[in-house]
């Protein structure tokens, strides 16, 4: 069984984001590039399946520019067997990325596609369910536990109103949530070893995928800043101010 893990590279979300001067995008000057934290959890989940013997090969894939090779190498250093990057600009629409990833999943003969529940940059959370829809596969988003049982995958998910366990036919697409696992660090020897692991680069053209042109990002703005707050001295002052603001009305 082959697992394809889709990863994206983001800029360190701990560094505050600011609006670009032209108002059409954001920038994070001096922020380090990182693997999207949710995708890191997906890589770890795939590695654990392989270590249990349920999975033969873990292939990590990404759709982005050459600078993303660093993130793919990180996944290889964590333990993925090989990587594949489709050379493309950053910030493509999720539908386009999903079409590319669906094509890659077919090409690799994947039984499972794993990815993070959302990118921490655009927070859209669309790509996973889209891949599943395009492939006609089953899907489970927000997974916090996963195990393979015969030819099925059993997933526990955190959903609004509670938790549920879903039993899915394989092949399937699973997006992972925070509490799935704690990703391992890549050790120095493994980082060295990852340099010689195969990392393929494909052109967009070779996949024959069409670009959706039905959505346009017009502009971005920051939400109005909050007024500076007050440090209250004690409980009595807090209660008085809360009453004045109408907490009890």
């Amino acid at each position: 069984m082959i697992v394809v893990v889709a990863v994206k590279q983001v800029l360190d979300p701990a560094v505050p984001v600011r609006i670009r001067r032209d108002g059409h995008g954001v920038e994070r000057p001096d922020a380090r590039p990182l693997m999207n934290p949710f995708d890191e959890i997906a890589v770890e989940a795939a590695l654990r399946l392989r270590e249990k013997g349920d999975v033969r090969e873990v292939v990590v894939v990404g759709v982005g520019p050459m600078e993303w090779d660093g993130t793919l190498r990180t996944a290889l250093a964590m333990g993925a067997d090989r990587g594949c990057r489709v050379d493309a600009p950053e910030s493509l629409e999720p539908l386009f990325v999903a079409r590319i990833l669906a094509a890659l999943a077919r090409r690799e003969g994947a039984s499972l596609v794993l990815t993070g529940r959302q990118g921490v940059d655009r927070d859209q959370g669309q790509t996973g369910p889209m891949i599943a829809g395009l492939l006609g596969w089953g899907q489970a988003a927000f997974a916090v536990e996963m195990r393979i049982q015969n030819d099925r995958v059993i997933v526990r998910r955190e959903v609004d109103g509670g938790q549920e366990t879903v039993n899915l036919a394989i092949p399937a697409v699973i997006t992972v949530d925070l509490r799935m696992n704690t990703p391992r660090y890549a050790s120095l020897p493994n980082i060295m070893r990852a340099r010689s692991k195969p990392l393929e680069c494909l052109s967009l053209e070779s996949l024959g995928v069409s670009l959706p042109e039905d959505v346009e990002w017009l502009d971005v703005r920051t939400p109005p800043p909050r007024k500076p707050g007050i440090r209250v001295r004690d409980v009595a002052e807090l209660a008085t101010r809360l009453k004045a603001l109408g907490l009890l009305s």
Binding site: V17, I19, V120, R122, L218, V220, P223
Partner: peptide, 9 residues
Amino acid sequence: IHANGVLAR
């Protein structure tokens, strides 16, 4: 987007 730090239209 960006953890509600930015609003995009």
